[in-house]
């Protein structure tokens, strides 16, 4: 009966694991909904700022903000947003793969890289891999606030303004739907892609006190809101990836239990048959 007993303990331990993964799946599912709402809520701010900036760029062609002009790149900044915790499938690894492919390309072109890391997983990963890390932010929690990101982003913005880096990129996971998360690497600065449409009627704002400081403040906030959006998107990705990963773990545990149950029944039956034949043999001998 020793084989049967071992199998029984194994089954009960897998059942316990299954309970945990099931609970994690449900927690992730409820957090995912909240994260998605938060993701939606951040959309209007960046959109509004974008409108104002694109208007300003047209109304003041003579003032070129440094964030709008291209320049030859010798050194780039890369902001990588990862999760704080694991157990979310290949989410972080896919993102790191994408980032590393780009970094190798830059290295081949002789471009140096400064890294800014958001999330505990990326800090751990790049600590092992090496790389020039200039700033980090970790443990933002389920409801990140923009306060915690301001300093981290400012490090990059200052470096850009001082001419120490010539481009800034942002790598994060884009939330497509619950089943799909797409690793993305976007160029943050210089800002491009603002529509070059002609204004039908020329009008301009009244500025208080002056157009330039308002423009500067807007630019900083725009970049910050893009990074913040990346963080919130990544959070929604994390929860949905975890939900899917935990669901498949629960399913796998169920399959394992079924198989073990079969093996257990066989072992038990074998033991009973053996016992009976022993008794019959014993009775015949008497």
């Amino acid at each position: 009966m020793s084989g049967a007993k071992e199998i029984r303990t194994k089954i009960s331990s897998i059942k316990n694991t299954q309970k945990i993964t099931k609970a994690m799946e449900m927690v992730a599912a409820s957090k995912m909904r909240k994260a998605q709402d938060r993701m939606q809520a951040t959309r209007p701010y960046a959109g509004k700022i974008r409108n104002v900036i694109s208007h300003l760029a047209h109304a003041h062609p003579e003032y070129h903000h440094p964030f709008l002009g291209e320049r030859a790149s010798k050194r780039v900044g890369l902001i990588i947003i990862s999760t704080d915790r694991g157990l979310c499938g290949g989410l972080n690894i896919n993102l790191f793969k994408k980032a590393i492919t780009n970094m190798q390309q830059w290295n081949a072109d002789g471009i140096e890289i400064d890294l800014t890391l958001i999330g505990a997983k990326s800090t751990a990963f790049f600590k092992r891999l090496g790389g020039n890390v200039v700033a980090t932010a970790t443990h933002l929690g389920d409801a990140p606030s923009i306060n915690e990101l301001i300093g981290t982003i400012k490090v990059m913005l200052d470096a850009y303004e001082d001419g120490r880096i010539d481009r800034v990129y942002l790598a994060y996971n884009e939330f497509v739907n619950t089943m799909t998360q797409r690793p993305l690497l976007e160029q943050l600065i210089p800002i491009h892609g603002h529509e070059e449409k002609e204004l039908e009627t020329h009008w301009d704002y009244i500025y208080e006190p002056d157009s330039k400081p308002v423009m500067d403040a807007l630019m900083t906030r725009y970049i910050e809101s893009l990074v913040y959006q990346g963080v919130v998107d990544n959070l929604a990705c994390e929860q949905s990836a975890r939900m899917v990963a935990m669901k498949s773990a629960t399913d796998n545990a169920g399959e394992l239990i079924d198989e073990l149950q079969l093996a257990y029944n066989k072992a038990r039956q074998a033991a009973i048959t053996q016992e009976i034949s022993e008794i019959v043999g014993g009775a015949a001998a008497v």
């Binding site: 800014t116 890391l117 890390v133 200039v134 700033a135 980090t136 932010a137 970790t138 306060n147 301001i150 300093g151 981290t152 400012k154 490090v155 200052d158």
Partner: peptide
């Protein structure tokens, strides 16, 4: 500025 310095210190 202080927040930026903090981020650098963390790194």
């Amino acid at each position: 500025e202080a927040a930026a310095l903090e981020a650098i210190a963390r790194a």
